[in-house]
Design a protein around this nucleic acid. Structure first.
Lengths: 391, 391
DNA sequence: GTCAAATAATTCAACCAATAAACAAATCCC
DNA sequence: GGGATTTGTTTATTGGTTGAATTATTTGAC
């Protein structure tokens, strides 16, 4: 418990407990009753009732048919996340497509629009205008479904700091204020919008699938019961192989962005100190051996180079799981043995517990999904703010 | 705000705010008044008064002479951490010495006992018995000073997991239950005792000096005002060069131990994939080029190898500061240029903001100090539990 | 069929902790 | 000495959880 710097008042207690109840409902396999939530959280039944009332009134929970009866007693009312409440708008701009999706509070993808087109000839303003109209369409479709879009997040393949896209080499962008551009579109002007790096958001997308949430489409092998586990699958490195190689690091269920937001530059980890020169100016960067260009050229060292760099990550951070995404996902089978051989040899603790290596589950949608997830995650973790919004 | 899994009651509010007040007093340059604490925290003066009363009654704070008067108004009563309250017992066992120290709530070292002797011939039980009697003497000395030892922490040069020293190669230990051994000594039997890796604890010792706490002996260059800063000096990598090379990673003021507690194994990060064989079985590990044996042999590649490995850390984690400790501290000047050249070349963002490299400030005492700090940190971050102890 | 047992959910008084505002204390400055 | 000013305490109020009692609804036994 690190002493945060803010005072706590009674209302913070309520905010916390609202989040706790929502979280418990979200992570239950079957719609739980108030009594079940009470047992799971340690809160009194009376308190849970009061909190649930607020969440029902605020349109975050709904009562559904109870879970199958077990014995005697008054039947319970099942609780579930609503599918007509707040939703997140996930946006992505990449070299050869624009995409938008809407995810509801349960984590279900309700709308999905993808527009294939080479963005490189377009200047940032043009590309963002096109994305904006795609986003506006997605929002409109969602709201005719009864959803309320709570915010939007944009994934870009580049370095983001202070809300600005500092540099996105493959788009040819530099210091672009993407948020301002999107806010300039009338249909989006009222939304809170954020930008983040594509690998970071894709990592969050994988988190949704892997850990913490049965609303995701598959359970990881060996995962325990529905509750938030301490670390096993909640800590992993997501590696996104594109032209460059980016990584999103999730530690204990939280994305670690670094002090200045520049973490995850695994593409420029040195693999062969005297190796090939890299466009970053150094020599022997991973990107030169395992970037998409090297892969396309049939680089024989790709898997070994990845294994060496990943071994460094595991030795330093003790992350138990590595997820390969982007261009790596489809060729996972051909990379696996080469990477695992290096991990076995180079990770000091590999004998004690092997590192789990797996392909990304969401494919090309990971970043967009992760972007939308950040929005609904915001509502889930702070429902009190959402409830206050109803003036 | 990640929704934790525990409910919050009113008493948690009090516990949090007690910690907040204590933290604020600890991080103030001059003894603050209740009103100043109120202003700094956002809590009401009335609330601060009530909290301070508890902390005074519980012997964590004392009233001292007020800070120099400024203008009109009733004079304030200054508040300061007590130097006769709870204290932490820091223990260290290493290849050629045993050590114990006592640190009070203000962070001052009140007692320090070091016993030079080669521990390698001794078996674990012998070594721990000797350390135990050193610890008992330190505790006795502290308690005749009016201190109350709140707990002890032990630093060992090895891999610790589940409270056990799994392996400490340089001591020749394997699966040693050091805590049990120490608890077997009558004078220590009532203390909460923990063990941790030497590099981890040394990192925490450096944190005390570098960030967050003016009670440390020097302020870092460029550090801001007394308050807990977001990241600058609160995130760093501490690298401890001994026979092996360990690292303690501090992110946002918290030690990151890894999912299984095995983080920080920088000594086995690959630097030259086809390089010298390492006793871990791999090739080209950093340890072979920058471990103490290589340094003693005058290895010319030491600085470069360190620079390569550290560049990987910075690229991955965006840590702005690297602290060199252990055997590196005394030869810092000779390593600096070589390391910085690699960092400049290989860290992608080095042009945007250079990585700060500095020697450890605490020298050989870092781990022992850090161990003691973990105890008083426990009291500082959760004063409510300490207060409850007075049945 | 009726009644007892069991389980779910709500109501209500008590309690705890923070707040706001009034009040008391101690000093400065004219 | 008296107003202005700041510190610290007192008191009533409010928000939120608790625990016990109460109501509601079902199963199962006789």
């Amino acid at each position: 418990m690190s002493a945060s710097t803010t005072p706590v008042r009674q209302s913070s207690v309520r905010a916390h407990n609202l989040a706790l109840v929502l979280h418990t409902v979200a992570n239950s396999a079957n719609p739980p009753s108030r009594a079940a939530v009470s047992a799971a959280t340690g809160l009194t039944r009376a308190t849970v009732s009061a909190l649930v009332d607020d969440l029902l009134a605020g349109g975050l929970l709904v009562e559904v048919d109870p879970p199958p009866r077990t014995g005697a007693g008054r039947p319970a009312a099942g609780l579930a996340l609503t599918s007509t409440g707040p939703a997140g708008l996930g946006l992505e701009i990449n070299v050869d497509y624009l995409a938008a999706c809407v995810v509801d509070l349960t984590g279900a993808v309700r709308h999905r629009h993808v527009e294939h087109a080479d963005q490189r000839p377009a200047d940032p303003a043009q590309a963002l205008a096109a994305l904006g109209s795609l986003a506006a369409r997605a929002r409109h479709a969602a709201e005719t479904d009864g959803l309320i879009v709570a915010g939007a997040a944009l994934a870009v393949p580049g370095l983001v700091a202070g809300g600005l896209v500092r540099v996105a080499p493959n788009l040819g962008w530099q210091d672009v204020d993407a948020v301002q551009a999107l806010l300039g579109i009338p249909e989006l002007a009222d939304l809170p919008i954020t930008v983040d790096n594509e690998a970071n958001l894709a990592a969050l997308g994988e988190l949704r699938v892997a850990g913490g949430d049965p609303a995701g489409h598959h359970s990881p092998p060996g995962a325990g019961s529905g509750h938030s586990r301490p670390g096993e699958e909640n800590s992993f490195l997501y590696v996104s192989g594109e032209i460059g190689i980016g990584a999103g690091l999730v530690l204990d269920g939280e994305l670690y962005r670094g002090v200045r937001g520049w973490s995850g530059e695994i593409g420029h980890v040195t693999v062969y100190p005297d190796g090939r020169p890299c466009r970053c100016g150094a020599r022997g960067c991973l990107e030169q051996y395992a970037g998409q260009e090297a892969l396309d050229a049939g680089e024989p060292l790709a898997a070994a180079a990845l294994g060496i760099a990943l071994s460094a990550v595991v030795n330093l951070l003790d992350v138990p799981v590595i997820v390969l995404g982007g261009a790596y996902a489809p060729i996972f089978a051909s990379l696996r043995d080469g990477i695992e051989a290096e991990l076995r040899a180079r990770v000091l603790t590999s004998a004690l517990a092997p590192v789990v290596l797996r392909p990304a589950s969401l494919g090309a949608d990971a970043a967009m999904r992760g972007a939308a997830d950040t929005i609904i995650r915001g509502v889930r973790e702070d429902p009190a703010t959402w409830l206050r919004r109803l003036t």
